[in-house]
Each structure stands twice: as structure tokens, then as C-alpha cells.
Write a protein that binds this DNA or RNA. Structure first.
Lengths: 189, 189
DNA sequence: GTCTATACGAGGATAGAC
DNA sequence: GTCTATCCTCGTATAGAC
């Protein structure tokens, strides 16, 4: 596990983008938290756009890995969906929403290269969830249209994060929205 | 219907916040589009924070009116939900997401006074939708828990806007997520 | 790789004339 | 109410020394 400067910059930048958005974080902020000068950051990431592009790329690769880990665990399909939802809930414990939810809001101010990375993120996530739901249909556990159901679920999770963030008790709000709904839709009984 | 400078400033500011977020619009942008100088904007709204606070206040009052108009129209409950969803779809035609969805993402950089306005918006919206769903339960049209169902619906709508915005064809994406789901949940058949 | 120094524009905001 | 002029800070980015 490497822990070089580039990684530390990305770690700090990721926290800040997820908390405050693309337009509200700066090289000066990173500089303070990482402990190097503004100019040094440009050595690793020549421009802010390239930094954010690298950020989203790393993030979506991490998401793919996290999803694969869930799929390879020996738990039931409905428990896999719970685990998937937990990925979104966990971020909220640090006040953070999904990087790509935030950047979807900031979409209009982002360069084309970042647009592409965000679109790949949602495409991958949707594909993974669709596959999962398809298994439930094949084994007659659920009655559903996997692709559309996947889109709806992701929308609900992203939106729940927004509502959670703007409420006094974020995590409770998120859980109150998400888990009963998953329960009623996918519970085994 | 008044159309003074303050209103024109708010109109332009609203477009820009919904498109680009709180941190990515400036007095200079407003100045250009309204056709007055930066300094003149400060006469109407002394600070950016006060401008945005006024913006959210006006926006949520407009939302209350729009919801009341739907409730007072002589259409079925399920059609009222469709109309409600249409409010969110219509903004997307100008590439705009809900003002409060955007500001929920920007929540961490906003002052307390704006937080409160946003929270009132969601509280009002949720209350209106809960009342609507409750009517469906009372008349045995639907089997549901109104309050929780309302939260879930709003989350889904807000999230669908984010997904729509980051996709190539925003409106199609939104419609594909939202309307089939409403159909399956609330259709009269 | 990281530093100092600096360029240069954009940000929000204020003072005072008209 | 709107203007010009101005302040001061912060933003991204670059050049060149170490």
C-alpha cells in the first residue's frame, strides 16, 4: 500500500470535494492539510481539472472493487443490496455524500474529461446493480425489471443523501428513507 | 406583477445557482445578465448570503403555491403525483435541477440562515406529499405509510435529477426513472 | 520534489459622486 | 438607485532556485 504525496493530495481533495463541491475547494486548502506548498501540488496535478479527473477515476475504480467484494461474499441477494446501500450511508458519517452525486450537481462547471468519468461511474454502478437484480429475477425471488429498478434504486440512494445532508440528523434521515424501502421491496419473506 | 430590479436579480441568480451551484456564480455574472453594475446589486442584496437566503425563501413560497394549485385542481390523486413529478422534470428542460437539491449539495458552505430556509422547503414539500398520500390511504386506494413513502418519493425525484443531469439525454433519463416507478406504485388499475 | 516569489484575474464588498 | 473607483483577499498557475 503506497502512501506517497499524490495519494495524500487525492485523499484530502476527495474529502473536500465530497463536502463542499468542486468550486468551493482550492489548492490552498489542500496545501494546508497535506503540509506542502500550493506550487508543489501542481507538480503532481498540473491543473485542478486534471486533479479532479484523477480523483473520479480512482473513486470509480474503488467503487467497482467495493461492489465486487459484496458480490463475492457469501450472503443472500437482499443482504447484498443492503451492503450496497451501506456504502452510501457510511460516507454520511463523515458528512460526505457520494463524490459523483456532488459532481453531478456541479456538472455544468466541469470539463468534458470529468463528465466522461462521472458517466462511467454511473454506468458501472447501474450495470452491477442490474446484474444483481437480474439474479433475483432468474431465481424468481423478485418480480422486477432489473435495469429500470437499478436506476430507480440509485436515484433513491443519491437523493436520500441530499435529504440527509440538509437535515439535522443525517444518518437517521438516510436510514429512515432507505432501509424500510429496501425491506418492503426485497425482503425474503 | 412587478418586474423591478430586485426581481430580475433574483431571476438571474436563480438560474445560475440551479445550473452551477452557490460557489460558482458571482455578482459579476449577475451584473452582465441584468445589465447593471456589480456595486448596484449590493444595494438590493448587501451580501451574497442574503441574496441566496431571499432566493430560497421566494423559491419555497413558489413551490407551496405550485403544490396548492395541483391539490386544488380536479384531477385524481395519482394524476396529482404525476403533476408533482412534472415540476421537477420541467426544470430539466433548461438544464436546471431543483434549487434546494443543488443547495443541499452545497450545504456545508452555506450560512445558518440559508440552512433553515432549505429545511423549511423540504419540510413543506414532504408535508404536502404526505397529506396527498394519506388521502389515498384513507380512501383505500393505496396501501402505504404516507410519511415514509413521501420521503422516499422526494429522494427518488431529487436523485433522478442528478442522474439526469449527468447523462447525455437528461429528460429522457429522468422520465425513464420516474414515471414507470410512479405508474407501478400508484396507478389506479 | 519541494521551495520562494510572483503574475494576473476574479471574488465580495464599500465609499462617495450623481 | 445606479454609477465609478477602489480595497483587499483569494483563486489558479508559472518560473526558477535548491
Amino acid at each position: 500500500m503506497e502512501n506517497n504525496t499524490a495519494k495524500r493530495i487525492l485523499d484530502v481533495a476527495q474529502d473536500m470535494v465530497r463536502n463542499r463541491g468542486y468550486s468551493a475547494f482550492s489548492y490552498a486548502d489542500i496545501s494546508t492539510q497535506v503540509g506542502i506548498r500550493k506550487a508543489s501540488i501542481h507538480y503532481h496535478f498540473p491543473s485542478k481539472d486534471e486533479l479532479v479527473r484523477a480523483l473520479v477515476k480512482r473513486y470509480r475504480e474503488g467503487m467497482v472493487k467495493a461492489c465486487d467484494r459484496i458480490a463475492q461474499s457469501a450472503i443472500s441477494l437482499d443482504q447484498q443490496i443492503i451492503q450496497f446501500a451501506n456504502l452510501y450511508r457510511d460516507g454520511l458519517e463523515n458528512g460526505q455524500i457520494c463524490l459523483c452525486a456532488m459532481l453531478a450537481a456541479d456538472f455544468e462547471v466541469l470539463p468534458e474529461a470529468v463528465h466522461k468519468e462521472i458517466q462511467i461511474f454511473f454506468r458501472d454502478t447501474e450495470a452491477w446493480l442490474t446484474t444483481l437484480l437480474q439474479q433475483g429475477c432468474d431465481t424468481s425471488v423478485w418480480d422486477c425489471q432489473p435495469e429500470q429498478e437499478a436506476k430507480g434504486l440509485i436515484a433513491m440512494l443519491q437523493g436520500a443523501q441530499l435529504l440527509a445532508r440538509s437535515s439535522a440528523n443525517s444518518i437517521a434521515t438516510f436510514e429512515q428513507i432507505v432501509y424500510p424501502l429496501l425491506q418492503s421491496k426485497f425482503s425474503k419473506d
